[in-house]
């Protein structure tokens, strides 16, 4: 309990220092936010153009797809906001030896990695996600009751953990290969598959994004629970279980990686 308190305090100190530095450049902040906002809006524009030609896509209406799309943005945005520095492990911190700094301080290593940075760009994703959810709610296509609201919160939390775990897993490979950015990139981009109903894909792809790199459990599968009465709430239970399992695997790999860390200059 004491440790938790201490870490919360440390997090506050570290992050508030970081925020001070980024507040010095508000323009950059706005640009980043706009960049992510734009990227996501283009996806919606694409769907809109397509639905000019067809009434529904394999039984899904445009509004339902917009909900899935928006729902997918929220755990993604949360993870992006808090753990963006994991990318630096994959691309830079391991190969150039900056990881030394973390090794020299009496704090948990993973904590140090994520406490180093908040990514305000993620607010662009969260903004798009929230706007699309509000739009969907106004169209009355989403089931709203106590159970669904409760599970909604659980689901976005578990979804964010799944994102973080996948990132941590592939970033940790850098301890072996020095730069694991490309691997992480591949895995992370898989998330795009889950923005649409997974039924449209071939069986192999559906299997991969459901069980191997389980982005379907972050977006499409839980989202369908909020859209269709026939989908059971257990889907959220499975999501939590997957989040737990993947977190344990990713964290174990990270721990193993730090034990074989080679630093730089050799």
């Amino acid at each position: 309990m004491n440790t938790l308190k201490r870490y919360l305090r440390l997090y506050r100190v570290l992050v508030s220092q970081f925020l001070k530095t980024i507040m010095q450049s508000k323009v950059d902040f706005l640009m980043g936010l706009l960049g992510f906002f734009f990227t996501q809006i283009m996806g919606i524009a694409f769907l809109y153009l397509v639905f000019e030609q067809i009434p529904s896509l394999q039984g899904w209406s445009l509004n339902q797809l917009i909900f899935i799309y928006g729902f997918a943005q929220i755990p993604r945005g949360i993870d992006h906001l808090f753990t963006d520095n994991i990318w630096m492990i994959a691309w830079r911190i391991v190969i150039n030896g900056d990881f030394d700094r973390y090794m020299l301080r009496p704090m948990n290593l993973f904590f140090q990695v994520i406490a180093e940075k908040l990514q305000p760009d993620a607010l662009g994703e969260l903004l798009v996600g929230t706007l699309l959810l509000i739009y969907s709610l106004s169209k009355g296509i989403v089931i709203v009751d106590a159970l669904h609201i409760g599970l909604f919160l659980v689901s976005i939390f578990a979804g964010a953990i799944i994102y973080t775990s996948i990132k941590l897993f592939f970033a940790s490979i850098a301890f072996w290969v020095k730069i694991s950015g490309p691997f992480l990139q591949v895995a992370y981009e898989m998330a795009d598959f889950a923005k649409y109903p997974t039924e449209i894909y071939a069986r192999a792809i559906r299997f991969i994004i459901t069980w191997i790199i389980p982005f379907a459990f972050v977006a499409y599968l839980p989202a369908s629970f909020f859209l269709k009465e026939t989908v059971s709430g257990w889907i959220i239970g499975i999501e939590c279980l997957i989040a737990l399992v993947f977190w344990c695997i990713a964290y174990a790999l990270f721990k193993k990686g730090t034990s074989i860390y080679e630093s730089a200059g050799n």
């Binding site: 030394d100 090794m103 020299l104 034990s259 074989i260 860390y261 080679e262 630093s263």
Partner: peptide
């Protein structure tokens, strides 16, 4: 030095 400080095993 890195081994003594715990950076390297």
């Amino acid at each position: 030095i890195k081994m003594m400080t715990g950076i390297l095993n």
